[in-house]
Design a protein around this nucleic acid. Structure first.
Lengths: 223, 223
DNA sequence: TAAATAGTGTCTATCAGACAATATCGT
DNA sequence: ACGATATTGTCTGATAGACACTATTTA
């Protein structure tokens, strides 16, 4: 089979999560050539006989390599060319996913593949052109949150508005010294009428202060 | 060569232009199987031995099939799956381009391939899943213009602000009965400080009224 | 001068940021 | 009552839409 006549098609995933009060992205150490031993985004080559959609390829990669299931995969863009993969002409479709950190630990911690969380703004050299993938996905994520999208999947199932605000601040903050803080009043005002989440009636986060109403993502929420 | 093991990779282009005071998209009648004789977006299958980038595939399709050169190609998204092309598992990368109508007529009118301009909001059934391609590209274009992007490539090289406003109105208008009109004052106010275009000093559009300053897109303008 | 379109100014409702005030818990 | 955080309210400057006004050409 001559690879020169058919491009390699793969799906790669930028899986983001919050850790150490920073936006981080999941990396895996490659166990096979090419770039064996180097860090890369999780991904897989499309298997036409198995995958019904390229998104299935992405989900398969996350499941097989990490044992992770994500609630939503956002197709971002394509990276292509004859040189980005030493095996030849290749097409990589980049997907973006968000996941609460605990959900990854719970399912992936016993896998043998070596993984790590890298700061989204300080990734080192990666295999292929994955560094550009991370930059594109991170910028897209920031842009969406700046444009008022709510990254609810970075939060636990039930969350308070203060936690939601904190998550948005961490996503938007480009470096830890940045004292970016959203205004509480303005933040909550713009959430009124938002259909993306709903109050869990009668449930509150309790502590040594006034209880905080708990919310959850709406059934059809995507992001 | 077994196609079942390698997906077909192609680039398709939604080329928009203004005609009949409406946003229209260029269609070509297919001269080969599959879907021979049906209308479709212009596109081509990636040739790894020729194309250095998928964008080159798109440009090659426009050049070979239509004799058209576009100033900018915007990669939009991927359509994929085993059923969208009867030849088997396929991946189509959709590109969007804008072009002043005259530029297409000037270069493409003598080509033998049959072409037509279809209203972006009233395309009939097309080959493959190209109807969804058109919808995605049209909605993306509208969204960008709604978010203040200026589709300068739909205009002649030199244009007046009134013409620019008219073009934005036509792009945003979803059907001809829609009386959508942008406010002249607000439209011009938001253009102050815009770096996307610049005045052509000393050049004016003349007529039976006060002369109108002519503008042109800035050198590095992309859209 | 009239017609026509270019270009600018004003008024106001709305909104986001800044900041303050109030509410309700645990202790 | 006190500490702590949740939630709501007020003030104000900036902005977009609506609309009116002025400017400059040809006929």
């Amino acid at each position: 089979m001559n690879h020169k006549l058919f491009p390699l098609v793969s799906a790669d995933i930028a899986l983001f999560s919050l850790g150490d009060d920073r936006l981080q992205v999941l990396l895996v150490r490659r166990t096979d050539a090419p770039h064996k031993g180097h860090w890369a985004l999780p991904g897989a080559v499309l298997k036409p006989e198995i995958d019904q959609r390229l998104e299935d390829t992405a989900r398969r990669a996350l499941r097989e390599k990490l044992g992770v299931e994500v609630p939503f995969l956002q197709q971002l863009r394509v990276f292509d060319g004859p040189l980005r993969d030493p095996r030849g002409w290749s097409v990589s479709v980049l997907y973006c996913a968000l996941l609460q950190r605990d959900r990854v630990r719970a399912t992936a911690q016993f896998r043998v593949d070596e993984i790590c969380w890298a700061d989204a703004d300080a990734v080192g050299d990666l295999a292929f052109d994955h560094r550009a993938h991370v930059a594109a996905a991170r910028d897209d994520l920031r842009g969406r949150v700046r444009d008022r999208a709510l990254p609810l999947h970075l939060l636990p199932e039930k969350f308070t508005l203060t936690q939601l605000q904190r998550v948005c601040e961490l996503v938007l903050r480009q470096d830890s010294s940045d004292p970016l803080a959203l205004d509480k009043g303005a933040f909550r005002r713009r959430l009124t009428g938002c259909q993306d989440f709903e109050a869990v009636e009668g449930e509150f986060e309790r502590g040594p202060q006034r209880p905080a109403q708990l919310y959850r993502a709406s059934p059809g929420f995507r992001f």
